[in-house]
Design a protein around this nucleic acid. Structure first.
Length: 376
RNA sequence: GCGAUCGUGGUGUAACGGUAGCACAACGGCCUGUGGCGCCGUUAGAGUGGGUUCGACUCCCACCCCUCGCU
């Protein structure tokens, strides 16, 4: 079994677990920085290791465009390519259906994308995507799913759910076949993805259908995309009624600190999001006293660190005045310092959450954190 | 000293005898399985003085300023 629950919270579904992969283990709850092309924007692999990021997620579809699966395979996979020593997830590319510039259309067979570099059309099937993710050499692959847009009708979401279920089966079969000869410890893991928008019944159908397949973990997709927070949390609860408790649950795309705690309380173990890095590039800084915008005028001459109670290497050395100046002037180093801090903040948050669960104080920790983070 | 040209938000620029538009800057906000450092909102303007006109940023006069040319 790849996943082991180590400690359960007595008052909620929160837990500390360990996910074993062929490149090492991660202790959950865990937040994965998004490294679409195997690099987090403005952050090097050694910085990720330094801040304690146990895992990242890259995008198989984007990597298939450049440098291409052939090249990646030739150099020995994304681990060798990037030298990152943590665990590497790859996303399928299903989410890129959300990008109007990349997505052309889809049918029961697969998805038609546009290569933004060459303009050529690419048809991707679930089977091809499984081969792709294996070629890239990630430790955990995600199923090729169909992503309904938030504004889509319920009928459209139902269609997406059905297609996602049937593709999940095809992914699982292909993935098993391709790894038939691989020894157990060297296997790439595969996670299924639940869809269903904000509809309880569709989420139940989706989660139920996926659970019939023996995935290494289960992801909840299609949330954290602008729906109301209460709906998001309710959807997690609905999915959890069906998902097995002995497998890791991955809430895809979530990266708001409070949202992470709410999801952990509801039994989610793994997260990823571009939220911290995108916020950083736009001057939004996470701190234990709440989020603020460092490029605002009030910080122009502030010698305070980004966060007075943070011990990351950026906060130890640099001032708000410096980061404010650099970001206002579009200096890459400014983006780097802010990105590093925000990512460190989430890593530290996860470390404290794991500790709190272990010592039985998760509920109290969550309450205190939200109180401090929300004031202002 | 003379002549010509030009004066519009902080900056750079439009249009028009009848609601002064745009860009950048400034100020505030947004961002959630990242092709794209992107998006939204707010503040802020007619050199000065007179004249013509129902009405002038616009037409006329004087002064001032900028730039260019001449002596």
């Amino acid at each position: 079994m790849a996943f082991t629950v180590l400690v359960k919270d007595a008052h909620s579904l929160a837990r500390v677990g360990r996910l074993k992969t062929r490149s090492g283990s991660v202790e959950t709850p865990v937040f994965m920085p998004v490294a679409t092309k195997t690099a987090v924007k403005h952050i090097s692999p050694e910085m990720l290791e330094e801040m304690g990021a146990q895992a990242t997620i890259s995008n198989s579809f984007v990597l298939s465009l450049r440098p291409g699966a052939k090249i990646v395979k030739k150099v020995g996979g994304i681990h060798t390519l990037s030298t990152y020593t943590g665990v590497m997830f790859t996303d399928s590319g299903g989410f890129q259906m959300y990008s109007p510039s990349l997505y052309k259309g889809s049918n029961d067979l697969g998805v038609e994308f546009k290569n933004p570099y060459s303009g050529e059309r690419i048809f991707m099937t679930p089977e091809q995507n499984m081969q792709l993710q294996l070629d890239l050499g990630s430790d955990v692959a995600m199923c090729f799913d169909t992503m309904p847009l938030i504004e889509h009708s319920k009928d459209a979401v139902a269609l997406a759910v059905n297609r996602t279920s049937s593709w999940a089966r095809r992914c699982k079969e292909t993935h098993d076949t391709l790894q038939k000869k691989v020894s157990k410890g060297k296997r790439q893991l595969l996670f299924g993805i639940v869809q269903g928008g904000v509809h309880d019944d569709l989420r139940r159908i989706s989660a139920g259908a996926l659970t019939e397949l023996d995935f290494d973990g289960f992801a909840i997709g299609g949330l954290a995309l602008g729906e109301a927070k209460e709906e998001e949390y309710r959807m997690i609860e609905v999915c959890q009624e069906y998902l097995p408790r002995n497998k890791p649950v991955y809430l895809m795309g979530a990266g708001n600190p409070i949202e992470l705690l709410e999801a952990i309380e509801r039994g989610c173990d793994i997260f990823d999001s571009r939220f911290p890095t995108m916020n950083a590039r736009h001057g939004n800084i996470f701190s234990w006293k709440g989020k603020y915008i460092v490029t605002n005028a009030e910080h122009k001459a502030s010698l305070k660190p980004l966060d007075e109670s943070c011990d990351c290497s950026v906060c130890k050395r640099y001032s708000r005045a410096y980061v404010c100046h650099l970001i206002r002037n579009e200096e890459g180093v400014g983006y780097q310092l802010a990105s590093y801090h925000n990512l460190y903040f989430l890593q530290e948050l996860m470390r404290r959450v794991r500790k709190a669960i272990k010592v039985g104080t998760f509920g109290k920790f969550k309450k205190t954190f939200i109180k401090n983070y929300s004031k202002k």
